[in-house]
Design a protein around this nucleic acid. Structure first.
Lengths: 107, 107
DNA sequence: AGAATACTTGGCAAAATCGCCAAGTAAAGA
DNA sequence: TCTTTACTTGGCGATTTTGCCAAGTATTCT
Protein backbone atom coordinates (compact mmCIF):
# COMPACT_ATOMS: atom_id res chain seq x y z
CA UNK A 1 0.00 0.00 0.00
CA UNK A 2 1.91 2.95 -1.28
CA UNK A 3 -1.16 5.17 -1.38
CA UNK A 4 -1.38 7.72 1.45
CA UNK A 5 -5.10 7.68 2.12
CA UNK A 6 -7.33 10.13 3.86
CA UNK A 7 -8.46 9.10 7.35
CA UNK A 8 -12.02 8.80 6.10
CA UNK A 9 -10.89 6.46 3.32
CA UNK A 10 -9.05 4.32 5.86
CA UNK A 11 -12.09 3.84 8.05
CA UNK A 12 -14.25 3.14 5.05
CA UNK A 13 -11.80 0.47 3.88
CA UNK A 14 -11.93 -1.10 7.31
CA UNK A 15 -15.65 -1.70 6.90
CA UNK A 16 -15.60 -2.62 3.22
CA UNK A 17 -12.78 -5.15 3.58
CA UNK A 18 -14.61 -6.83 6.42
CA UNK A 19 -17.58 -7.39 4.12
CA UNK A 20 -15.51 -8.42 1.10
CA UNK A 21 -15.68 -12.17 1.66
CA UNK A 22 -18.54 -14.51 0.71
CA UNK A 23 -18.74 -16.19 4.10
CA UNK A 24 -18.68 -12.90 5.96
CA UNK A 25 -21.28 -11.26 3.77
CA UNK A 26 -23.45 -14.38 4.07
CA UNK A 27 -23.19 -14.13 7.84
CA UNK A 28 -24.12 -10.47 7.81
CA UNK A 29 -27.06 -11.10 5.51
CA UNK A 30 -28.31 -13.86 7.80
CA UNK A 31 -28.07 -11.66 10.86
CA UNK A 32 -30.40 -9.14 9.30
CA UNK A 33 -33.28 -11.29 10.43
CA UNK A 34 -31.97 -11.45 14.00
CA UNK A 35 -29.17 -12.75 16.20
CA UNK A 36 -27.71 -16.22 15.76
CA UNK A 37 -25.23 -18.37 17.65
CA UNK A 38 -21.89 -19.37 16.14
CA UNK A 39 -22.87 -22.99 15.55
CA UNK A 40 -25.89 -21.91 13.51
CA UNK A 41 -23.70 -19.61 11.45
CA UNK A 42 -21.27 -22.47 11.02
CA UNK A 43 -24.02 -24.59 9.49
CA UNK A 44 -24.91 -21.67 7.28
CA UNK A 45 -21.49 -21.09 5.76
CA UNK A 46 -20.34 -24.70 5.96
CA UNK A 47 -16.71 -24.22 6.93
CA UNK A 48 -14.79 -25.23 10.02
CA UNK A 49 -15.93 -23.70 13.28
CA UNK A 50 -12.55 -22.05 13.77
CA UNK A 51 -12.81 -20.44 10.35
CA UNK A 52 -16.24 -19.06 11.15
CA UNK A 53 -14.98 -17.78 14.46
CA UNK A 54 -12.18 -15.89 12.75
CA UNK A 55 -14.58 -14.37 10.26
CA UNK A 56 -16.75 -13.24 13.14
CA UNK A 57 -13.73 -11.70 14.84
CA UNK A 58 -12.99 -9.70 11.70
CA UNK A 59 -16.56 -8.44 11.46
CA UNK A 60 -16.53 -7.64 15.15
CA UNK A 61 -13.26 -5.72 15.02
CA UNK A 62 -14.67 -3.72 12.12
CA UNK A 63 -17.46 -2.72 14.46
CA UNK A 64 -20.15 -4.41 12.43
CA UNK A 65 -21.16 -7.10 14.90
CA UNK A 66 -21.62 -7.31 18.62
CA UNK A 67 -21.60 -10.50 20.64
CA UNK A 68 -23.22 -11.74 23.80
CA UNK A 69 -22.54 -14.96 25.63
CA UNK A 70 -25.54 -16.70 27.14
CA UNK A 71 -24.76 -20.03 28.73
CA UNK A 72 -22.48 -22.00 26.47
CA UNK A 73 -23.53 -20.24 23.33
CA UNK A 74 -22.27 -16.99 21.86
CA UNK A 75 -24.82 -14.93 19.97
CA UNK A 76 -23.88 -12.44 17.30
CA UNK A 77 -26.00 -9.61 16.00
CA UNK A 78 -25.59 -6.63 13.72
CA UNK A 79 -24.44 -3.61 15.67
CA UNK A 80 -25.80 -1.29 13.01
CA UNK A 81 -29.38 -1.26 11.77
CA UNK A 82 -28.42 0.61 8.62
CA UNK A 83 -27.15 -2.53 6.97
CA UNK A 84 -30.18 -2.91 4.83
CA UNK A 85 -29.52 0.51 3.37
CA UNK A 86 -25.95 -0.48 2.68
CA UNK A 87 -26.89 -3.66 0.86
CA UNK A 88 -29.54 -1.84 -1.12
CA UNK A 89 -26.83 0.54 -2.29
CA UNK A 90 -24.59 -2.37 -3.25
CA UNK A 91 -27.45 -3.98 -5.14
CA UNK A 92 -28.11 -0.81 -7.09
CA UNK A 93 -24.46 -0.75 -8.11
CA UNK A 94 -24.21 -4.44 -8.90
CA UNK A 95 -27.38 -4.33 -10.96
CA UNK A 96 -25.77 -1.71 -13.15
CA UNK A 97 -23.01 -4.24 -13.82
CA UNK A 98 -24.99 -6.93 -15.58
CA UNK A 99 -27.22 -5.32 -18.18
CA UNK A 100 -28.32 -1.72 -17.82
CA UNK A 101 -25.76 1.01 -18.61
CA UNK A 102 -26.42 2.87 -15.39
CA UNK A 103 -28.44 2.65 -12.23
CA UNK A 104 -30.78 5.09 -10.64
CA UNK A 105 -30.45 6.72 -7.24
CA UNK A 106 -34.16 6.30 -6.74
CA UNK A 107 -33.77 2.50 -6.30
CA UNK B 1 -14.37 -20.66 -0.67
CA UNK B 2 -16.33 -23.61 0.62
CA UNK B 3 -19.44 -21.51 1.19
CA UNK B 4 -22.18 -22.03 -1.39
CA UNK B 5 -23.51 -18.49 -1.72
CA UNK B 6 -26.74 -17.17 -3.03
CA UNK B 7 -26.55 -15.51 -6.47
CA UNK B 8 -27.34 -12.17 -4.90
CA UNK B 9 -24.50 -12.58 -2.44
CA UNK B 10 -22.13 -13.36 -5.28
CA UNK B 11 -22.97 -10.22 -7.21
CA UNK B 12 -22.74 -8.16 -4.05
CA UNK B 13 -19.30 -9.58 -3.34
CA UNK B 14 -18.23 -8.67 -6.84
CA UNK B 15 -18.90 -5.01 -6.11
CA UNK B 16 -17.65 -4.98 -2.54
CA UNK B 17 -14.35 -6.70 -3.35
CA UNK B 18 -13.70 -4.19 -6.11
CA UNK B 19 -13.97 -1.40 -3.56
CA UNK B 20 -11.99 -3.17 -0.84
CA UNK B 21 -8.62 -1.65 -1.65
CA UNK B 22 -7.33 1.76 -0.56
CA UNK B 23 -6.18 2.82 -4.01
CA UNK B 24 -9.41 1.74 -5.66
CA UNK B 25 -11.61 3.42 -3.08
CA UNK B 26 -9.50 6.56 -3.36
CA UNK B 27 -10.02 6.51 -7.12
CA UNK B 28 -13.76 6.07 -6.74
CA UNK B 29 -13.96 8.86 -4.19
CA UNK B 30 -12.06 11.16 -6.52
CA UNK B 31 -14.36 10.38 -9.44
CA UNK B 32 -17.34 11.54 -7.46
CA UNK B 33 -16.47 15.07 -8.42
CA UNK B 34 -16.24 14.16 -12.10
CA UNK B 35 -14.26 12.21 -14.67
CA UNK B 36 -10.47 12.06 -14.63
CA UNK B 37 -7.81 10.65 -16.90
CA UNK B 38 -5.55 7.79 -15.84
CA UNK B 39 -2.48 9.95 -15.38
CA UNK B 40 -4.33 12.23 -12.97
CA UNK B 41 -5.47 9.21 -11.01
CA UNK B 42 -1.93 7.95 -11.02
CA UNK B 43 -0.75 11.14 -9.37
CA UNK B 44 -3.56 10.76 -6.88
CA UNK B 45 -2.74 7.25 -5.70
CA UNK B 46 1.00 7.50 -6.25
CA UNK B 47 1.71 4.03 -7.59
CA UNK B 48 3.02 2.85 -10.93
CA UNK B 49 0.87 3.60 -13.95
CA UNK B 50 0.46 -0.09 -14.68
CA UNK B 51 -0.78 -0.70 -11.17
CA UNK B 52 -3.35 2.07 -11.47
CA UNK B 53 -4.42 0.67 -14.81
CA UNK B 54 -5.03 -2.74 -13.27
CA UNK B 55 -7.03 -1.24 -10.43
CA UNK B 56 -9.14 0.57 -12.99
CA UNK B 57 -9.68 -2.66 -14.89
CA UNK B 58 -10.96 -4.29 -11.71
CA UNK B 59 -13.37 -1.44 -11.01
CA UNK B 60 -14.48 -1.47 -14.61
CA UNK B 61 -15.11 -5.21 -14.71
CA UNK B 62 -17.16 -4.83 -11.55
CA UNK B 63 -19.30 -2.42 -13.52
CA UNK B 64 -18.47 0.53 -11.33
CA UNK B 65 -16.58 2.64 -13.85
CA UNK B 66 -16.93 3.41 -17.50
CA UNK B 67 -14.16 4.70 -19.73
CA UNK B 68 -13.90 6.88 -22.77
CA UNK B 69 -10.86 7.53 -24.88
CA UNK B 70 -10.43 11.06 -26.14
CA UNK B 71 -7.23 11.66 -28.03
CA UNK B 72 -4.35 10.07 -26.20
CA UNK B 73 -6.05 10.16 -22.87
CA UNK B 74 -8.49 7.73 -21.32
CA UNK B 75 -11.09 9.22 -19.03
CA UNK B 76 -12.81 7.25 -16.31
CA UNK B 77 -16.05 8.10 -14.61
CA UNK B 78 -18.46 6.50 -12.17
CA UNK B 79 -21.07 4.49 -14.01
CA UNK B 80 -23.45 4.73 -11.09
CA UNK B 81 -24.60 7.99 -9.50
CA UNK B 82 -25.69 6.20 -6.32
CA UNK B 83 -22.13 6.03 -5.05
CA UNK B 84 -22.62 8.85 -2.63
CA UNK B 85 -25.43 6.91 -0.98
CA UNK B 86 -23.20 3.89 -0.76
CA UNK B 87 -20.37 5.76 0.93
CA UNK B 88 -22.78 7.43 3.30
CA UNK B 89 -23.94 3.98 4.35
CA UNK B 90 -20.36 2.86 4.87
CA UNK B 91 -19.66 5.96 6.92
CA UNK B 92 -22.62 5.32 9.16
CA UNK B 93 -21.32 1.84 9.81
CA UNK B 94 -17.73 2.86 10.30
CA UNK B 95 -18.72 5.61 12.69
CA UNK B 96 -20.32 2.99 14.91
CA UNK B 97 -16.93 1.29 15.08
CA UNK B 98 -14.98 3.92 16.92
CA UNK B 99 -16.98 5.05 19.91
CA UNK B 100 -20.75 4.81 19.93
CA UNK B 101 -22.35 1.41 20.57
CA UNK B 102 -24.66 1.72 17.57
CA UNK B 103 -25.45 3.99 14.68
CA UNK B 104 -28.71 5.42 13.54
CA UNK B 105 -30.44 4.85 10.23
CA UNK B 106 -31.38 8.49 10.18
CA UNK B 107 -27.68 9.52 9.93
C1' DA C 1 7.15 6.96 -41.55
C1' DG C 2 9.31 7.63 -37.07
C1' DA C 3 8.97 9.45 -32.41
C1' DA C 4 6.48 10.64 -28.43
C1' DT C 5 2.60 10.25 -25.26
C1' DA C 6 -0.87 7.70 -22.66
C1' DC C 7 -2.17 3.96 -21.54
C1' DT C 8 -2.83 -1.73 -21.15
C1' DT C 9 -1.16 -6.40 -20.55
C1' DG C 10 2.16 -10.26 -19.29
C1' DG C 11 4.92 -11.99 -15.89
C1' DC C 12 6.76 -12.68 -11.56
C1' DA C 13 8.13 -11.99 -6.66
C1' DA C 14 6.40 -10.17 -2.27
C1' DA C 15 2.60 -9.66 0.75
C1' DA C 16 -1.92 -10.60 2.46
C1' DT C 17 -5.76 -13.69 3.09
C1' DC C 18 -7.93 -18.10 3.85
C1' DG C 19 -9.05 -22.53 5.92
C1' DC C 20 -7.83 -26.52 8.31
C1' DC C 21 -5.89 -28.88 12.47
C1' DA C 22 -4.49 -28.72 17.14
C1' DA C 23 -4.66 -26.70 21.48
C1' DG C 24 -6.68 -23.55 24.84
C1' DT C 25 -10.71 -21.20 27.50
C1' DA C 26 -15.32 -20.76 29.57
C1' DA C 27 -19.82 -22.31 31.10
C1' DA C 28 -22.95 -26.20 32.33
C1' DG C 29 -23.95 -30.80 33.82
C1' DA C 30 -22.87 -35.40 36.08
C1' DT D 1 -13.97 -32.48 40.12
C1' DC D 2 -14.26 -34.47 35.64
C1' DT D 3 -16.59 -34.36 31.23
C1' DT D 4 -19.00 -32.27 27.63
C1' DT D 5 -20.34 -28.47 24.80
C1' DA D 6 -19.42 -24.15 22.40
C1' DC D 7 -16.39 -21.43 21.06
C1' DT D 8 -11.51 -18.80 20.41
C1' DT D 9 -6.65 -18.64 19.30
C1' DG D 10 -2.06 -20.28 17.41
C1' DG D 11 0.15 -21.98 13.62
C1' DC D 12 1.06 -23.19 9.04
C1' DG D 13 0.54 -24.44 4.14
C1' DA D 14 -2.20 -23.07 0.11
C1' DT D 15 -4.37 -19.69 -2.52
C1' DT D 16 -5.17 -14.93 -3.84
C1' DT D 17 -3.90 -10.22 -4.30
C1' DT D 18 -0.72 -6.64 -5.07
C1' DG D 19 2.79 -3.83 -7.41
C1' DC D 20 6.79 -3.30 -10.15
C1' DC D 21 9.23 -3.91 -14.59
C1' DA D 22 9.17 -4.90 -19.34
C1' DA D 23 6.80 -5.12 -23.48
C1' DG D 24 2.85 -4.11 -26.43
C1' DT D 25 -1.07 -1.05 -28.44
C1' DA D 26 -3.30 3.20 -29.93
C1' DT D 27 -3.30 8.02 -31.01
C1' DT D 28 -1.00 12.32 -32.03
C1' DC D 29 2.75 15.07 -33.74
C1' DT D 30 6.62 16.07 -36.84
Amino acid sequence: MTTPQLPRTTSRINVIKALAHPSRLTIVEALQSGEQCVCDLRNLVGTDLSTVSKHLAILRSAGLLSMEKRGLKVFYRLSCPCFLDFLNCVDRMSSSTSSSPSCSTAG
